[in-house]
C-alpha cells in the first residue's frame, strides 16, 4: 500500500496548484459585473424559450451500456493476469461470459440503442 502515498501527495499537490491558479485570477483580474455580462450566452440573442427540454433517452442508454461493458472490463482484468494459471478452462469460461455479453450487445444493436438518429 505504501506506493499509494506518492499518489496521495501528487493529488494534494495537484489540487493545491489548481487552487492557486484559480485564485490568482480572482486576485489580479478586474471584475465589473453588469446584467448584460452575466446573462446566459445564446449566440448573442436573448433566450428564445424555456431552457428545460425533454431529456434524450439515448444518454441514459449510453450510460447504461457503459456501466455494463465497464463491468465486463473489471472481470477481464484478473482473467488476463491469471490466464497462464487457469489455462484452457479459464479461457473458455471467459469466452462463455463474453459470448453472453456479445448476445446482449447484439440485442442492443438490433434494437437500435446505438443509433443516434
Amino acid at each position: 500500500m505504501i506506493e499509494y502515498l506518492g499518489i496521495l501527495i501528487y493529488f494534494i499537490v495537484a489540487g493545491a496548484l489548481a487552487l492557486i491558479i484559480l485564485g490568482l485570477s480572482f486576485i489580479f483580474a478586474t471584475r465589473k459585473a453588469d446584467p448584460e455580462k452575466i446573462s446566459a450566452y445564446e449566440c448573442g440573442f436573448d433566450p428564445f424559450d424555456d431552457a428545460r427540454s425533454r431529456f434524450d433517452i439515448q444518454f441514459y442508454l449510453v450510460a447504461i451500456l457503459f456501466i455494463i461493458f465497464d463491468l465486463e472490463v473489471t472481470f477481464l482484468f484478473p482473467w488476463a493476469l491469471t490466464l497462464n494459471k487457469t489455462g484452457f478452462f479459464g479461457f473458455w469460461s471467459m469466452m462463455v461470459f463474453l459470448g453472453i455479453l456479445t448476445i446482449g450487445f447484439l440485442y442492443e444493436w438490433r434494437k437500435g440503442a446505438l443509433d443516434w438518429s
Partner: peptide, 9 residues
C-alpha cells in the same frame, strides 16, 4: 500446457 490443471477439468 505444463501446468497440472487436470484438476479443474
Amino acid at each position: 500446457i505444463p501446468y497440472d490443471f487436470d484438476f479443474n477439468l
